[in-house]
Design a protein around this nucleic acid. Structure first.
Length: 649
DNA sequence: CTCTGTTTATA
DNA sequence: AAGGTATAAACAGAGT
């Protein structure tokens, strides 16, 4: 195999000649990284661009070949004129709009390039995204590591690759000698096989699912670059505030524990969440309360709904226990916030940056949505459900502001696009708002009151209306609606009333029922659901005999096109934003929260940035999409205190 | 230490 | 005669 070592820019140019002269336009590349001095002993520091540098770069332009450019090895010789090489690579390759840049797990490479101020631009191709879009079903990919090169290459090319630790034997990559062929071989194999995967996956796409090639090339690969940028940036936190709130929470929890034991009349070990066996035995055995609800596995439930029901029962039979359940509910609320959002977030502050950099997975879900882990920054509690203000832990860096844009009702707009319901389409095309109509229907209040933001319970009512709308779209039953209303809004509605609401909604939007029936029928026939752009999700149990199982998969068949198309639309917006970032370095992408994007922006560039981002998000996502899209902006210094913002365009 | 069940936070 | 779906994370308890 022809793997070479480059020690000069001339060597590199010689290898890349066919690429530079336009005979081929595809190049795969890969970085080897090692921790910088300060983080040498820290686990996984080599994977963190704030604790590591690029040790060397490998490139490949044709199968079974590759070249390795050593940059920062500690022994033997590195390439001459590293600055010149980096400049050459950025200009001629990474930012070259004619060249297809291939990498396996592109967000990693994009993250390191961003560190050096280089924004890699489309066309790009992430072979890990391609793997997810081709083999996810048959190989059962879930985690990123399941589709690492070390798994894919043996499976697809019948070639064994040495693992990183076999080659490095516990050392960092920069301690290897670049003149050893093993070093060159290891580094080059990664780009060589990334390139071969590019051709292999494209053959697969062209043969079996051309639309997934479009999704890979035009959506997921640019998204991988954007993801690398978000991961690099992370979000700054106010550690002092977190420590202070931690103490407040501890105090509150111990007070509540004491009160709970007082009301219970004895010492009770309720653990961190009032979920111990001792707690459950106390309510169901000692107090002999009725089992008002069971869990999925038919055990006695003790969740918040059960607490509400028990509280109601006690109001009639055992009034002194009402307070007990109220205290338990409050205890759990504080417990959740302390363990997940205070202690949990504190564990994830990066020592090098003082910021939180979550793991973001653009293909982490079955529908095409992102997932966020370690920590999950997509589920920070909202103001109205959070006594301590967790979102205020997040602050913009000095001289910057947070800028946040939220797609308004994106899933319902997508739903309107799919079901072609006249009234829904018209409502959106004339700038209207379906949640308001629903609000007025279910609360029996005039439309004017439903749209009045100053009216009491505006937000809460809207949330419930939203639940109804989404629920009805995806197959909510009257029972489910009744439950949502009872437990989320504290509203007692009869089953008949709920049936009436659903009937009203369905009558109000007749296109909806037709679409639902047709979508379920097609899903059963094809055994998959797809988004408007053809992103597929297979529906294993859609033809199962068991009503419950089949019914679940039918709801997935209704949900996937809508949730998935909304995800596609957001990812298309990311692509447009990415294209504009090189000329707008004052915009720093931080997070994606499903229908929302968070940025840090230089404070005197906020309106410029807002105008640009809004335009990217509101652009027609693909030609057939005929429903207007709206993005609403907000600015602020703390994530919990963003103020709505008027954006002119 | 890992695994399952349950609960709860978000979109 | 009836479960909106998509996630991540924490705790509790049981088993290795």
């Amino acid at each position: 195999m022809a793997y070479e070592l480059a020690t000069t820019l001339t060597d590199l140019k010689e290898y890349l000649k066919p690429l530079l002269e336009g005979e081929t336009k595809v190049v795969a590349f890969d970085f080897e990284t090692s921790p910088i001095e300060e983080w040498r002993g820290v686990k996984d520091a080599a994977l963190d661009p704030h604790k590591a540098d690029i040790t060397g770069i490998s490139l490949s332009i044709s199968p079974e070949t590759g070249i390795y450019v050593p940059l920062l090895h500690q022994i033997s010789k590195n390439a001459e004129d590293i600055g010149g090489i980096m400049l050459f690579l950025s200009k001629e390759i990474f930012q070259n709009r004619q060249m297809i840049k291939v990498a396996h797990n592109l967000s990693f490479e994009a993250m390191f390039l961003y560190k050096y101020g280089v924004m890699i631009l489309p066309p790009v191709y992430d072979t890990i995204a391609a793997a997810q879009l081709t083999l996810k079903e048959e190989m059962g990919f879930r985690e990123l590591k399941d589709c690492g090169l070390k798994t894919l290459v043996p499976a697809l090319f019948n070639v064994e690759l040495p693992t990183f630790s076999e080659v490095t034997e516990g050392k960092h990559f920069d301690e290897l000698n670049p003149e050893d062929y093993e070093t060159v071989r290891y580094a080059c194999a990664d780009s060589d096989f990334a390139l071969r995967l590019y051709y292999r996956f494209n053959e697969w796409f062209d043969r079996f699912l051309p639309k997934h090639r479009f999704i890979c090339e035009e959506i997921e690969s640019p998204t991988a670059v954007y993801t690398g940028i978000m991961k690099y940036n992370g979000v700054a936190v106010d550690r002092n505030l977190m420590e202070q709130k931690k103490r407040e929470a501890e105090q509150k929890l111990s007070e509540l524990r004491r009160q709970i034991c007082d009301v219970a009349g004895r010492e009770l070990d309720i653990g961190a969440n009032a979920a111990t066996d001792e707690f459950k035995r106390f309510i169901y055995e000692e107090m002999k309360l009725p089992v008002v609800k069971t869990t999925a596995k038919f055990a006695e439930a003790a969740d918040d709904e059960a607490m509400v029901l028990l509280k109601e029962w006690c109001a009639g039979h055992n009034p002194e226990l009402v307070q007990f359940f109220e205290l338990i509910q409050e205890y759990r609320k504080w417990g959740k916030i302390k363990s997940t959002y205070v202690d949990g977030y504190l564990q994830h502050i990066n020592e090098a940056t003082g910021r939180i950099h979550p793991d973001l997975f653009p293909l982490g879900t079955d529908t095409g949505r992102f997932a966020s882990r370690k920590p999950n920054l997509q589920n920070a509690p909202r103001k109205d459900n959070d006594p301590i203000g967790v979102r205020n832990f997040f602050i913009a860096r000095p001289r910057y502001k947070f800028l946040d844009f939220d797609f308004s009702q994106i899933e319902l707009r997508v739903g309107a696009y799919f079901c072609r319901d006249k009234r829904m389409l018209e409502a959106y095309q004339t700038g209207g708002d379906i949640h308001s109509q629903t609000t007025s229907v279910i609360y029996k209040i005039p439309f004017e009151q439903a749209v009045d933001k100053a009216a009491t319970q505006y937000k809460e009512r809207r949330t419930i209306a939203k639940n109804c709308n989404f629920g009805v779209f995806f197959g909510l039953f009257p029972r489910g609606l009744q439950r949502t209303l009872k437990f989320k809004a504290g509203l007692e509605a009869s089953l008949e009333e709920c049936e009436q609401i659903i009937r009203n909604l369905k009558n109000g939007y007749p296109g909806l029922m037709r679409w639902q029936a047709e979508t379920k029928r097609r899903a059963a026939l094809r055994k998959y659901a797809e988004t408007a752009l053809g992103r597929r999700r297979y529906l294993k149990g859609i033809n199962c005999e068991d009503w419950g199982v089949k019914s679940y998969w039918e709801r997935c068949a209704l949900n996937t096109p809508i949730q998935g198309t909304a995800a596609d639309i957001l990812k298309l917006a990311l692509q447009r934003i990415l294209e504009g970032l090189p000329e707008r370095p004052y915009i720093k992408p931080l997070l994606q929260i499903h229908d929302e994007l968070l940025f840090e922006v230089e404070e005197d560039k906020v309106s410029e940035a807002a105008e640009f981002i809004k335009a990217c998000m509101e652009a027609v996502p693909f030609p057939e999409f005929d429903v207007p899209i709206k993005a609403e902006g907000a600015v602020g210094t703390r994530f919990g205190e963003l103020e709505e913002m008027e954006v002119f365009s």
